[in-house]
Every structure is written in C-alpha cells, then in structure tokens.
C-alpha cells in the first residue's frame, strides 16, 4: 500500500469549457517508469497537472506522495516533484545564467527568507555535471539551444531532489540527436536516483522502450495499460491514433528507438 506513490481515483478535470479528463483512475508504484502515450488532446498533460497539484479536480480523489490534493495545497507537494515541460521560448536577453536557473529548483524547498547555502550550490553543480552542462553554467539561459535548455530543465528538476519525476513531451521540437540524448539521460537518472517517473509523449519514437508500463490515453480516458510489448502493437496504435495499420507499420519502421 505504501508503495503506491500515486493513486488517482476517477479524476474528472475540465480545461476551459471542455472536459479534459473524464474519470481517469491510475496507480503508480514506487520506482516505476510509466510512459503515457496518446494523440494530441487526449488528456496526457492534464493527467500530469493532476499529479503535481496544478489541475483543478471537478470530481474524484487524488493522492500523491501521501498528499490528498485539494485546491491550494499543491505548493508543498510540488517541492518534491521534479517537472520537465516542453522546450520553452526564452527571451535571449533574459538576465539569468544557467546555474541560477538550476538553483530555482532549490528555491521552493528552501522556503522564503532563506538564501542558498554551500550545500545547495553543491547540489546544483552536481546536477549540472550529471546532465553534462557544467561547462555552460555561467552562460545566459537565452543563449542555449533547445537540447541544452532541456538538459537545464532536467538539472533543475534534479536540484529539487524529487521523489517523483514528471516529463511532459520533453523531446518535442528537438532534433534526433538531442531527442535520443535526452531519453538516455532521463533513463539514466531514473535508474541511478531510483525515482518514480511519468513520461508523456505523443511520439512513440520518443518513448524509452525500457519503460515498465505504458498507459494509452484517448479522448480524456485511459484506453489501455500494460507492458509495452503487449500493448504497442501496430493494431492497437492504429486504433489509438485513428490511422490505417499499414501507415502505422511503415512509420514505426522509420522511427528511431532508444534502448
């Protein structure tokens, strides 16, 4: 029972006038690596916002890391949840350097009126080292490429020393090399830090094939869940994405997968 870090019970969430999640239930155990797959608009991102306490529940219950989520109590939870969003547009003149951006990951945990200490700088530098960005630590954040920005996002999430690691399409809009680098990095971090990871993507070629479990989402519902080998068949995917089997087959042959 205590192994269940995330318990979502019939969650209903609306986004503007649409219902984004229509009664979704999901349990995730400690140490699992779960891939969440589905077409655009399936509710994948909304599911992540429910997990880190940003989504507004209309109905259902959500318990994450022992917190029952109610509106307004998300901040204490989010300090323990590392979140990596899609590549963000950053003002190239923004006066903040890479190391300071990673330090933002410590700010929530530090709390108000506390300045970062030596231990915090050590955690930040270690995270930068792990993602291979130490040499750019003094560079203005706006001067980085998309792949480098995502490494910094991963480092910031690591600086939180999180128990839960959420990634929302972290490889979208990156080139092939940067995509596979980020995937390898995420898998390596998941293993070495024994984290519990939720990885959202619409692009199957960007899913670490070593994930323990996949959750297929469509139209605000969980459509299927199970082991990747069982579920990720051409037949299933053609139904998930509403595309003919032959098209799915040819696309998957071209796709680059990462072990």
């Amino acid at each position: 029972m205590d192994d269940e870090l995330i318990v979502i019970d019939k969650a209903v969430v609306s986004y503007r006038e649409d219902i984004a999640l229509r009664g979704v239930s999901l349990k995730v155990s400690k140490g699992e690596f779960v891939g969440i797959i589905g077409p655009n608009g399936a509710g994948k991102t909304t599911l992540l916002t429910v997990v880190n306490g940003m989504g507004k529940l209309l109905d259902g219950k959500v318990r994450v890391l022992g917190h029952y989520l109610t509106p307004g109590n998300g901040n204490s939870l989010r300090k323990k949840v590392g979140y990596v969003p899609q590549v963000q547009n950053i003002d190239p003149r923004m006066p903040i350097c890479v190391r300071e951006v990673v330090m933002i990951g410590r700010y929530g945990i530090l709390g108000m009126f506390k300045r970062p200490r030596k231990a915090d700088y050590e955690i930040v530098d270690e995270a930068l080292e792990l993602v291979g960005m130490s040499h750019l630590s003094q560079r203005p954040i706006g001067h980085l490429s998309g792949g480098e920005l995502q490494r910094v996002s991963v480092a910031r999430a690591l600086a939180q020393q999180p128990e839960l690691f959420l990634l929302d399409e972290p490889t979208a809009s990156l080139d092939w090399k940067a995509q596979s680098d980020i995937l390898e990095l995420v898998k390596m971090i998941h293993d070495t830090r024994s984290l519990t990871t939720l990885f959202v993507t619409h692009d199957l070629s960007c899913l670490p094939v070593t994930c323990d479990r996949v959750v297929l989402m469509k139209e605000g519902l969980i459509w299927a869940e199970g082991s990747p080998a069982e579920l990720l068949t051409d037949n299933n995917l053609s139904r998930l994405y509403d595309m003919p089997v032959a098209v799915v087959e040819s696309r998957r042959k071209k796709a680059v997968t990462v072990n």
Partner: peptide
C-alpha cells in the same frame, strides 16, 4: 510556470 512547478506561490 517554472516558479509554480518548484513550489513557489
């Protein structure tokens, strides 16, 4: 969004 995600109100 980043500030919110690390637990800053």
């Amino acid at each position: 969004d980043t500030a919110l995600a690390v637990g800053i109100p």
